[in-house]
Design a protein around this nucleic acid. Structure first.
Length: 399
DNA sequence: ATGTAC
């Protein structure tokens, strides 16, 4: 199977009796995979009840558990999903007459500001809420969050599978909104409630955890639709239904076991957008991953550097201006300089290699690529904004 | 990735 396979048959006889699960890495030998991330896969493999760990080519170290892995177990471990339960990527078609990045970047709404049922009662974006708000959770509703989350206006670039692209109504030059976000404070609350009592232990009442988890998954999806509607209206377009909306942090019950996905998208007959970086292409693919891959595909380019390294090396290598205007001509709306360095394209692996690894292992077939026009991270409040002044204080004497 | 504390 994989050239970085470390299945039990390759281990000495004595190691086979430990009850450790199998670990398969779906990456070429030349693809960059950190040894810390592999070590985390093997730590996970040693957990009680673990059956199989499938590591995707975007694998990188996470907090306690690897990111970019699908982990099947007879026991449910909330920490393997992490705090951003329901995080995922949705793609919405959008029609605009003129797509000039400079003009559109200035029109994005403030996605740090939650939709308030009273103050924003007249906001037309509420129309996408067609049911109860999951868990009745209003805090942070309609906000993108931080880290690697973003809302991007992108153009369909290459058509790689014409028949499939046509079925989805995608043509070269068409525009889409790509929304990567999750359940914000809600998922964090759910994991914390478990962790305070059980730490990294399993869920003693899986059904109880799953009920809360499912709320967070629904909330994340609603949040992505709300943001797409907020942005569509702000850009002078109508909101649309998502073409794809796949969640890469969740646990599902499948074949009688708990399949935990952490930075791994469902890849079993579904279409999924695999995000590049703020300054490179993304790829919509048709997933056809089988049991060896725990029915999963990669979720993005995957970090190549820790946030700390990206910040340190980025300050020496890039100016803020070149990170806000990328090599593909897109604009990055980000009023937080530190985040801009942490999320620099050079801090990530090459998305084309990740896609090639998926193709080579027969996990996915690319449908189209997209190229960013405007990527929104967090509001730019102008040169004298409180945020930028804070950044200047933080950076003084260091850069 | 998160809200909160420093």
């Amino acid at each position: 199977m994989s050239t970085q396979d470390s299945r039990q048959e390759s281990l000495p006889q004595s190691a086979r009796t430990t009850g450790s699960a199998t670990v398969t890495v779906f990456a070429s030998p030349t693809s960059w995979i950190e040894s810390d991330a592999l070590a985390q896969c093997h730590q996970v493999a040693a957990l009680d009840g673990m059956i199989h760990v499938a590591a995707m080519p975007d694998l990188h170290p996470g907090k306690g558990a690897p990111i970019g892995a699908a982990m099947a177990s007879s026991v449910l471990y909330p920490f393997l999903v992490g705090s951003d339960i329901g995080c995922g990527i949705a793609v919405f078609p959008i029609k605009l007459k003129h797509a000039v990045p400079e003009k559109l970047a200035a029109r994005f709404p403030d996605l740090d500001q939650a939709l308030d049922p009273v103050r924003d009662a007249d906001d037309p974006a509420w129309a996408v809420v067609d049911d109860e708000i999951p868990a009745g959770h209003l805090e942070g509703l309609g906000t993108v969050g931080r880290g690697n989350h973003f809302v991007e206006l992108a153009r369909i670039d290459s058509i790689l599978d014409p028949a499939h692209a046509t079925r989805l109504g995608l043509t070269a030059g068409g525009l889409v909104l790509i929304v990567h976000s999750g359940s914000r404070g809600l998922g964090e609350q759910i994991l914390r409630a478990h962790t305070e009592v059980h730490g990294a232990g399993s869920a003693p009442d899986p059904a109880a955890y799953l009920a809360l988890h499912d709320d967070a998954v629904r909330w994340g999806s609603l949040n992505r639709r709300l943001m797409a509607a907020r942005v569509a209206y702000a850009l002078g377009a109508e909101p649309t239904e998502p073409l794809v909306d796949q969640c890469h942090n969740l646990v599902e019950v499948r074949d009688g076991v708990y399949l935990h996905r952490k930075g791994a998208a469902p890849g079993d007959g579904r279409d999924v957008l695999i995000a590049g970086t703020r300054g490179t292409r993304s790829y919509l693919v048709a997933g056809h991953a089988g049991p060896d891959a725990n029915h999963s595909v990669a979720h993005g380019a995957g970090r190549k550097m820790s946030r700390a390294d990206a910040l340190r090396r980025g300050r020496a290598k890039h100016t803020v201006e070149e990170l806000r205007r990328t090599p593909v001509g897109s604009l990055v709306v980000c009023g937080d300089r530190q985040l801009l360095f942490e999320e620099a394209p050079t801090a990530y692996k090459r998305i084309e290699q990740v896609i090639a690894d998926l193709v080579d292992h027969d996990l996915a077939t690319p449908i189209v690529s997209t190229v960013p026009l405007v990527t929104y991270k967090t509001p730019t409040l102008g040169p004298n904004s409180p945020r930028d002044r804070r950044d200047q204080r933080r950076n003084r004497g260091r850069s």
